[in-house]
Amino acid sequence: MAFVQLIEYTTSKPEEVQKVLEQWEQSSQGKRTARRLVLGRDRNDPTRYCEIVFFDSYESAMENSDLPETQENARKLMELMDGEPVFRDLDVVEEREL
C-alpha cells in the first residue's frame, strides 16, 4: 500500500532549509526510498511549510528514515525550525487523477 508522510513546520530560515534538503537529495542518491516530494508554503503564514513525501509503502518509508543521510538531514533541519515539526503518517487508501 502506498504511503505519504506530511511534515509541517515553521522556519524563519527557508533558504537554509532548502539547502539542507538539496544536500540530502544529493547524499541519499541511489539509497533513498522517497519517490516524490512536494513542498508548500502557507499563504496565511509564510513561515509555515508542509512537505508531502511519497513512498511505495510504510516499510519503505521506515527504510528511508533509518538511512544515516536521512538522520543527519533531520538533525540539521531541526536546528533551522522554529519549534517541533508535526508528522502525519498516512496510508494511501485512494489515489486518482481529477
Rank of each mutant, 00 (worst) to 15 (best):
S65F: 13
D82G: 07
D66I: 06
K19G: 04
V4G: 05
E95R: 04
V86K: 10
D56R: 02
P46I: 00
L39A: 04
I7Y: 05
N44W: 01
G40S: 13
Q26Y: 07
P14L: 01
V4H: 05
K76Y: 10
V38H: 15
A61N: 09
N64G: 12
R88Y: 14
L21T: 07
T70C: 15
D42W: 00
W24C: 03
R96F: 08
Q71T: 09
D89C: 13
R88A: 13
F3Q: 01
L77G: 02
L6W: 03
Q29G: 11
L37H: 14
D89L: 12
G30P: 02
L6D: 06
E63D: 15
I52L: 06
S12G: 10
Q29T: 13
V92N: 03
V38K: 15
L6V: 05
V17W: 00
L90I: 14
L21M: 14
G40Y: 11
L21F: 14
S65H: 14
G40T: 15
V53Y: 08
A74P: 07
Q29D: 12
W24V: 03
T70E: 10
D91Q: 08
E72H: 11
N64H: 13
W24M: 06
V4I: 12
P68A: 02
T11F: 01
R48N: 10
Q71Y: 09
K31S: 01
M78H: 11
R35T: 09
G30F: 02
Q5L: 12
R96L: 06
W24Q: 04
V93L: 14
L90Q: 10
D45Q: 00
V92Y: 09
A74K: 05
K76E: 13
A61P: 00
S27K: 12
G83N: 10
